[in-house]
């Protein structure tokens, strides 16, 4: 049974289609990353899972139950993007308040609150008013409140927003630790480097459609592409290599380097043998790989920005600010 599953999920706001038939599955114990431009529908998807907004069509389940029901929400922790904590609370009292809403008994809250705040690194300020917290501290508090009731699923919308690099690393480590404890994490982030570092699977939403989905390895996998450079003064035999059936192109911004693209079933060895037979000396050979950012940029390149770019008169915003 998948922990999160959506099937042909649609959400419309008036004439705006925020989600267009999104289907995805998140398995237990995974860290699942959701990527997309602003307005791609990421936050809307999360809000549907939590019952904050209603789906228009399709189906969404959380832990095997219809998404958004009260019973399911007991088993989910959530950090929204741009959260607003009441400034009149201290870190401790806020955790106590939310813990009570989750039904955590007082004795457990008393023990768990300092522990959880310690985990996110703000225990030293837990009796200070939240209005005195920095953005990073509020973000850490937000993560802490999502963990308060030991949920099975943790949904984090931009968890490292406003957090310094050191803090980001700590949060990444925390997520890995939570994953190790069997929690499932559904992550929405703009920081592709982070997502690449910790996510097991990633989905890319573009204008409400799911355009790519898979493991990091699957998404960053490229057709075999090598960059080769010869000794200074030697000429690369492009025509001969093309005759062997390879695609060749010189790299425009790196003089003397050529990109060789392999077709299915080809290896680089015949090219190396040709260069050797012609007495050419290879001084640079690197197998080219894609980063997640490359994948993301390639995927969304040329696409219209999100629907929140500019609201038309009478139009309603879509979900959060994603």
């Amino acid at each position: 049974m998948s922990v999160i599953e959506t099937r042909e999920l649609w959400k419309t706001y008036g004439r705006i289609e925020a989600l267009k038939g999104v289907s995805l599955r998140v398995e237990k114990g995974q860290i699942y990353g959701l990527l997309g431009q602003n307005g791609a529908g990421k936050t809307t998807l999360i809000k549907i899972l939590l019952g904050i907004v209603r789906l228009t069509d399709g189906d969404a389940t959380l832990l095997g139950h219809p998404a958004g029901t009260v019973d399911v929400r007991k088993r989910v922790g959530y950090l929204p993007e741009d959260h607003q904590f009441p400034g009149y609370h201290t870190g401790y009292s806020l955790m106590d308040f939310y813990g009570s809403l989750y039904g955590v008994p007082a004795s457990v809250r008393k023990q768990k609150i300092p522990e959880t705040l310690e985990l996110v690194g703000i225990a030293g300020r837990m009796y200070s008013k939240i209005k005195t917290y920095s953005k990073g501290m509020k973000q850490r508090l937000g993560i802490a409140q999502s963990l308060m009731h030991d949920p099975e699923v943790i949904i984090l919308d931009e968890p490292t927003d406003g957090v310094d690099p050191m803090g980001r690393r700590e949060i990444r480590e925390l997520m890995s630790e939570l994953k190790g404890q069997g929690h499932t994490i559904f992550l929405n982030s703009h920081l592709l480097g982070e997502v690449e570092l910790i996510c097991d699977r990633v989905a890319i939403l573009q204008q409400g459609k799911l355009v790519r989905e898979g493991t990091i390895a699957e998404l960053t996998k490229t057709k075999g592409t090598f960059v080769i450079g010869l000794l200074s003064g030697q000429t690369f035999p492009s025509d001969a290599v093309i005759k062997l059936g390879y695609a060749v192109r010189p790299l425009p911004d790196q003089a003397g380097l050529f990109e060789i693209t392999l077709s299915d079933g080809q290896t680089i060895e015949p090219v190396m043998k040709l260069l050797s037979e012609r007495g050419l000396t290879v001084v640079h050979i690197v197998e080219k790989k894609q980063t997640l950012e490359d994948v993301f940029m390639t995927t969304v390149e040329g696409a219209e920005p999100g629907v929140d770019r500019k609201r038309r008169r009478g139009a309603r915003p879509v979900g959060g600010r994603d």
Binding site: K47, L50, G51, I52, V70, D71, R73, K74, V76, Y78, P80, E81, D82, H83, Q84, F85, P86, Y98, L101, Y102, G103, Q145, G320
Partner: peptide, 18 residues
């Protein structure tokens, strides 16, 4: 209105309370 602010209501509605 403070409770209904974006970012505040999300937090409350995501809790197991109708």
């Amino acid at each position: 209105p403070n409770m209904l602010r974006k970012g505040s209501i999300d937090l409350l509605i995501s809790k197991p309370i109708g």
